[in-house]
Design a protein around this nucleic acid. Structure first.
Length: 419
RNA sequence: GCCCGGGUAGUGUAGCCUGGCAACAUAUGGGACUGUGGAUCCUCUGUGGCGGGUUCAAAUCCCGCCUCGGGCCCCA
């Protein structure tokens, strides 16, 4: 017996039905926002990912050397590949460029619920604009995608990294000091942040201002506390985004959260995340923001914002919320009563299939009773019984599997009745 | 990578503490009701994650590994 590799999954037809359905809903939402689908390879050069995230991520990558000696890696995410694609081939496309994608990604992590070594992401990037309306539209789309997919309990947090970094520079914190603070901010350990700031010789008042800003979700309060032109200007932008979300997109269910940091290295400006609180440790469904990667990849700098949605987690959240996925059904199950009927039955089956009807036929030469039972267990809507009695009159028996009602119908009329 | 809890037919479970023939339900295949279902009955197949140790004897006790789950770490 062979075992499935750790952290990977097989999907049953029931699960695939759910996944395809949700993927379609997401895809439609992307399309209604004017986004176009792209696809990139499953593996890339290792360098693409180390350039973006540093050598430290090699530990969490599925990387390998191919037979030509090239260092490659299975993609751990899709932003870097898509931006590589953009820099390589799409720079002259009319702006803004709105791209979306679905793809499996691979990370060498310890698996647990909602975290797999092979997982699927849905995401997008908008290239060439960073107006408040562009950012608001993007955040709204992320929210709507999850809402349209049917997730009920969503928490949308929005922050802005430029405000944080301008405060950092105002307090003259060194890069190392910032590096020390960021993980603590990420973990909401604000007392430790305060203590650290004091250790860095920040005045008590300034330290409390910073920790206040990090903790409050009251934008007025932040307005009163924030200092410096850059931070004030960014705050104004943030305010515009929030106002668009509320007034234009009807999304009121958001919270300011200045402690979203998301690896400050290449994220700039607005950042956001959407959580499904019911999911526990791995509850983040979506993360995104504005970032600067194009220049790093050798392209002409232009604003970019994007997000990624954890597809598997979205499915998990829906299942937890007892979301009712559509049931897989079969339009017709054909039952030949005797072996002599098989040829005619296959022909009728095939005729219906050519008309686009979902039809299956008994292939085990089972009796009527077992066949009907089987038809019922696979959720067939109708059964067509084909036997000598019926054929004498050029007819078949059509049985409605829900009501149990059945009628003798002419073969030439089957198509009409089924449709 | 760390801490904790699990792993018994395809699925869901009992037995484990206190070692002694591996079992129940369900699903699947076949059959009965001789052409009408969700039923009933009969029947076949199928089970201890893997390896080692203790013992006359291990699903049961001990150790290691694998794996799933909860919590960390990480979260691009």
């Amino acid at each position: 017996m062979f075992k499935i590799p750790r952290g990977t999954r097989d999907f049953t037809s029931e699960e695939m039905q759910k996944r395809r359905y949700i993927e379609e809903v997401m895809q439609k939402t992307f399309e209604t926002f004017g986004y176009k689908e792209v696809q990139t390879p499953t593996f890339e050069t290792l360098e693409l990912f180390t350039a973006k995230s540093g050598d430290a991520i090699i530990e969490e990558l599925y990387s390998f050397t191919d037979k030509g000696g090239r260092d490659l890696a299975l993609r751990p995410e899709l932003t870097a590949p898509v931006i590589r694609f953009y820099v390589d081939k799409l720079q002259m496309e009319p702006k803004p460029l709105k791209l979306y994608y679905f793809g499996n990604c691979y990370r060498y992590d310890r698996p647990q619920k909602g975290r797999y070594r092979e997982f699927k992401q849905a995401g997008c990037e908008i290239i060439g604009t960073d107006t408040a309306e562009a950012n608001a539209e993007l955040i709204a789309m992320a929210y709507k995608i999850l809402e349209n997919a049917g997730v009920k309990n969503l928490v949308l947090n929005i922050g802005n990294l430029n405000i944080l970094s301008s405060l950092f520079s105002q307090f003259k914190l060194t890069k190392d000091q910032q590096k020390y603070l960021i993980p603590q901010i990420d973990k909401s350990m604000f007392e430790d942040v305060f203590d650290a700031l004091r250790d860095f010789d920040i005045k008590k008042e300034d330290a409390s201002i910073l920790t206040e800003i990090l903790q409050t979700s009251d934008i007025k309060k932040i307005e009163n506390l924030v200092m410096g032109d850059v931070a004030k200007k960014e705050l104004e932008e943030l305010n515009k985004i929030l106002s668009f979300l509320d007034k234009s997109f009807g999304i009121k269910n958001y919270q300011i959260k200045m402690s979203i940091v998301r690896g400050l290295d290449y994220y700039k400006g607005v950042v956001f995340e959407i959580e499904a609180p019911s999911l526990g440790a791995e509850k983040q469904l979506c993360g995104g923001g504005t970032y600067e990667l194009i220049k790093l990849f050798g392209g002409k700098e232009t604003p970019t914002t994007g997000f990624a949605i954890g597809f598997d987690r979205t499915i998990l959240a829906l299942e937890l919320e007892k979301y009712e996925f559509p049931n897989p059904t079969l339009d017709v199950f054909v039952i030949p009563v005797t072996e002599e009927m098989i040829e005619k039955s296959l022909k009728i089956t095939q005729n219906l299939r050519e008309k686009g009807v979902k039809v299956d036929i008994d292939l085990l030469r089972r009796g009527m009773s077992k066949s009907l039972k089987y038809a019922s267990s696979i959720n067939a809507k109708k059964a067509i019984i084909i036997g000598p009695k019926e054929l004498e009159q050029d007819s078949v028996t059509i049985r409605d599997m829900e009501t149990g009602k059945q009628d003798l119908k002419k073969i030439k009329d089957i198509e009409k009745i089924i449709k």
